[in-house]
Simulated assay, not measured.
Amino acid sequence: MASIDYEKLVQAIGDAVVVVDVSGVIVTWNAAATRIFGYTEAEALGRSLDLIIPERQRDRHWEGYMKTVSSGTTRYGSSVLRVPALHRDGAALSIAFTVALLYKDSGQVDAIAAVIRDETTRFAEERALRKRLTELETKLAVGASTP
């Protein structure tokens, strides 16, 4: 069996792969993360994950993050989490991701890896469809109540 160069694999994946240490500092940032968020690898490495977290979401994010680090468990290993994020230019993004906890030999969490997909377009399309459905339901209700 051929050996796999995991660094090349991470860089080739079409979804963003972002790995942060237990304090929330970015230690891995692939090419797809650059495409999605606008920061180069050099700009992102060594910086806080706050780089891509909207300010209004940060307290909630870090509360959950620290709970995950201390408990060593997450439900987002197999369940997708959908949250807002920020592009380098300040534009709002909608992302979906799962995480993998990376452990030390002692069993403590050493890092958290996220595989992230940009769902901004899909989210906007769903929002427009929901709005249109509400408008049609309102028209239908108004029409039904008119004799």
Score class of each variant (00 low, 15 high):
A2E: 06
A2W: 04
E7S: 14
V10Q: 06
D15L: 06
A16R: 00
V17C: 11
V18F: 04
V20I: 14
D21C: 03
D21N: 11
S23M: 09
G24S: 08
V27G: 12
A32E: 03
A32N: 01
A33M: 08
A33I: 04
I36L: 07
G38Q: 10
G38L: 03
Y39S: 06
T40V: 08
A42L: 07
E43K: 01
E43H: 05
E43P: 01
L49R: 15
D50P: 07
D50I: 12
P54E: 00
R56K: 14
W62S: 01
V69M: 05
S71H: 02
S71C: 06
S71I: 10
T73I: 13
R75M: 11
Y76S: 04
G77N: 11
R82A: 12
L86G: 00
H87A: 10
D89W: 01
G90F: 05
A91E: 14
S94D: 12
I95M: 03
A96Q: 10
T98L: 09
L102M: 11
K104M: 03
K104A: 10
K104S: 07
D105H: 04
S106A: 03
G107A: 06
V109T: 04
D110K: 01
A113C: 13
I116E: 03
I116M: 02
R117N: 09
E119P: 00
T121M: 12
T121Q: 11
R122G: 11
E125W: 15
E126D: 15
R130K: 10
K131L: 13
L133Q: 10
E137K: 05
T138H: 14
K139F: 11
K139C: 12
A144K: 13
P147W: 14
P147Y: 12
